[in-house]
């Protein structure tokens, strides 16, 4: 009996995916879930349209309270981070090569930064519309 030729000796597990990324996921997750529940209630019950949705004026008025853009910024940061860290986890489960993984990481970080930057900008713009 010969050892199958495709047998690979076990090497040390590759470092690089550590506890911190997982912690980011489990901290942002429950946080954004709580904010999401508020978000659902606000957007389906507090608006002035028949179905409870907010009109443009409703939104601008709502954003005048400084707490609101603050929470929205936390929300967009948490949800984009959670989503992209999670997406990267799914890519990892497909055993990409190291260069492929690095390319995906760079892409996701860029996308995340752009999305969060855009979200912050949007929140401030809307708040400013009421001034």
């Amino acid at each position: 009996m010969t050892t199958p030729s495709t047998f690979k000796p076990v090497s040390s597990p590759r470092p690089g995916e550590t506890a911190w990324l997982w912690l980011v996921k489990i901290v942002t997750g429950p946080l954004l879930f709580l904010i999401f529940i508020l978000h659902l209630v606000v957007n389906h019950y507090l608006g002035s349209t028949a179905s409870g949705l907010m009109t443009y004026d409703d939104v601008v008025a709502y954003f005048q309270n400084p707490l609101i853009p603050a929470i929205e910024i936390i929300f967009v940061t948490a949800v984009v981070t959670h989503s992209l860290v999670g997406l990267r986890g799914i890519v990892l489960d497909m055993n990409p090569s190291r260069p492929a993984l690095n390319a995906v990481t760079v892409l996701l970080v860029a996308l995340g930064a752009a999305a969060i930057g855009y979200g912050i900008w949007l929140a401030l713009v809307i708040a400013a519309k009421g001034l």
Binding site: S12, P13, R14, P15, G16, E17, T18, A19, L21, W22, G89, L92, D93
Partner: peptide
């Protein structure tokens, strides 16, 4: 720690 806290370790 470094063995389990790794890409092919615990977090899979």
């Amino acid at each position: 720690l470094n063995i389990v806290d790794s890409e092919d370790g615990l977090w899979r």
